[in-house]
Design a protein around this nucleic acid. Structure first.
Ligand code: SF4
Ligand code: SF4
Lengths: 155, 155
DNA sequence: ACATTTAGGATGATTTTAGTCCTATTTAGC
DNA sequence: GCTAAATAGGACTAAAATCATCCTAAATGT
């Protein structure tokens, strides 16, 4: 359907959450689940994937939890997504040369190539660090909408 | 999976085929199916969708067939895809405001918005007419690879 | 009439999606 | 060493999407 799955969406939320914590601080599944509104048991699977993909590290047992394996500046949005969804290919012919045998003479192939490149430019261009900053600005700017241009108090 | 479905892929192939015919010329399902390597019975459904979407017109009965409802210059790649797949939304929050209730304070939302915009720029930027031309160039340029830089004859 | 074509619906196998749940293992702290 | 707290991992499932096939109805040119 040319849409990201819940896996990818939840992975981004989880990684973004960890990026917002102090470096190396441990977060519990239950914390992440509640803050990011992801079903706890489902999130458990997502975290496993993220650990295996090397994006997140975990400590088991009492006082365990999850933390980022790398600094938020070094994790892109695309990486978070692909860690759980696998590599993105907008069409089968982008998987590898010859995957679609029409690729050599197909004019549409080139367009998908370009489209994917452009998509990646956006997804690679955002790091978790930047997203955390963006998120903070959003919270500051929009506590309520329809702000009466001057005085913050009203009614 | 963030990948176009066979529906979309086949729709593009079919519309592109029709775009390559003379204006108003009728093409049979069997012709399109064979040329574009799409299962005939499946293609039948795709063509129905394209007709209902208003991209293609059909004539039933003997000497019937399909032809483009508009000129190839006026049909974009995105239209061909969305005609059978429905509108593209890279993430649920792009469907409409409030579809994801986090959208107002979610920094990732903005990125998806930008990503989709860029994707659409590419998909909207290619018309069927242009793709036909592109296809012709590809056929001229690459009859064989590893061309011996000068003489076309060899062995 | 008849052959040719598309229209449309019913059906179905397989895969993906979006989860849940239970047990095993690891670890900290007492 | 025991125990409580956590993650690891696998089994399982319901529902939906994907990728088709097949059959009958309707339309149309000759
Ligand atoms: S766009 Fe062209 S090359 Fe890519 S899958 Fe479709 S036919 Fe094959
Ligand atoms: S990116 Fe943000 S707004 Fe969009 S679906 Fe995810 S959480 Fe919601």
């Amino acid at each position: 359907m040319l849409q990201i799955t819940r896996d990818g969406e939840y992975a981004v939320r989880a990684v973004l959450f960890l990026a917002g914590r102090a470096e190396g601080a441990l977060s519990l599944i239950s914390e992440i689940s509640e803050a990011q509104e992801v079903p706890k048991s489902y999130l458990s699977k997502i975290m496993q994937h993220l650990v295996r993909a090397g994006l997140v590290k975990s400590r088991r047992g009492a006082r365990g939890g999850f933390y980022l394996a790398r600094k938020p500046e070094e994790i892109t949005l695309r990486e978070a997504i692909e860690a759980v969804e696998g590599p993105i290919f907008l069409n089968v012919c982008l998987i590898k040369k010859g995957e679609c045998h029409r690729d050599e003479f197909c004019p549409v192939h080139q367009v998908w190539k370009e489209a994917q490149k452009r998509l990646f430019e956006v997804l690679d261009g955002k790091t978790m660090a930047q997203l955390v900053i963006d998120g903070e600005s959003l919270l500051k700017k929009k506590p309520k909408k329809k702000s009466a241009r001057k005085s913050p108090a009203s009614v």
